[in-house]
Design a protein around this nucleic acid. Structure first.
Length: 220
DNA sequence: CACCAGGCAAGTA
DNA sequence: TACTTGCATGGT
């Protein structure tokens, strides 16, 4: 395994501690949140999720019965509400059709197959699919998001225009294939990203990884 | 006011 | 394949 990956993990964990991800009460809530948070701040997603909870609608059956217009109104705060309403509907249609909306059945399926199926659903791309696999179903896939790319390219550990699959491979070949580790690692990267590695780069000098290069001995 | 946030798909060349 | 654009709210 690449030592730098383990070193960064230890540094982040020592600095921030465990993140207890994904912030949701149930696996189903994780799946809905994964779609709602696409290119959107989490605080806006929380309002939308809370609306659904308040109306007792946060279940596959209830959401499946809901008219798209009504769903869109409930998730308004998450932005792109018309498109996300459709995406949620597409996702629900898929889980009912292929898995009887059963978490158990989804867990039983080989996750490589499930990943392919998820990617075929309109509105589910690689990050959303992997978030569902890892955080809702506990499958050992590494989630790559904007923070992951930004942090690692700023530290010159990956090419800045590496695509999703390349970044994912970097992590998955460099770490033991362990869902618990992938879970905590990605959560720590998001935490780091929010506090130290925003796009306009506010606190780079204070970043806990600022001298990561000095800490590693000459390996890859 | 401008810019950004835990993406994705559809259109164009 | 490789760009470009639309989608939209709420915070800074």
């Amino acid at each position: 395994m690449k030592r730098i990956l383990a070193l960064i993990y230890r540094k982040l964990y020592a600095y921030f501690g465990p993140q207890y991800w994904w912030p949701a009460e149930t696996p189903f809530e994780v799946m809905i949140g994964a779609i709602l948070t696409q290119n959107t701040s989490w605080s806006n997603v929380e309002r939308a999720i809370n609306n659904l909870k308040k109306e007792r609608l946060l279940s596959a059956k209830k959401l499946n019965r809901l008219r798209p217009r009504r769903l869109a109104a409930l998730i308004k705060s998450a932005g792109y509400y018309n498109i996300k309403s459709r995406r949620l509907k597409s996702f629900l249609e898929f889980i009912f059709k292929e898995y009887d909306a059963s978490l158990e059945k989804m867990r039983e399926a080989p996750y490589t197959k499930l990943r392919q199926q998820l990617l075929a659903v309109n509105g589910i791309g690689q990050e959303t699919a992997d978030s569902i696999l890892l955080y809702a179903l506990g499958k050992p896939v590494f989630v790559v998001d904007a923070y992951t790319k930004r942090i690692f390219s700023r530290h010159k550990l990956i090419d800045e225009d590496a695509d999703y699959a390349q970044v994912q491979e970097f992590f998955m070949t460099g770490l033991p294939r362990n869902a618990r580790l992938f879970n905590e690692y990605h959560a720590l990267l998001v935490r780091l990203g929010k506090e130290f590695c925003l796009k306009n780069n506010p606190k780079c000098a204070l970043c806990p990884l600022r001298d990561i290069k000095k800490d590693r001995g000459g390996e890859e």
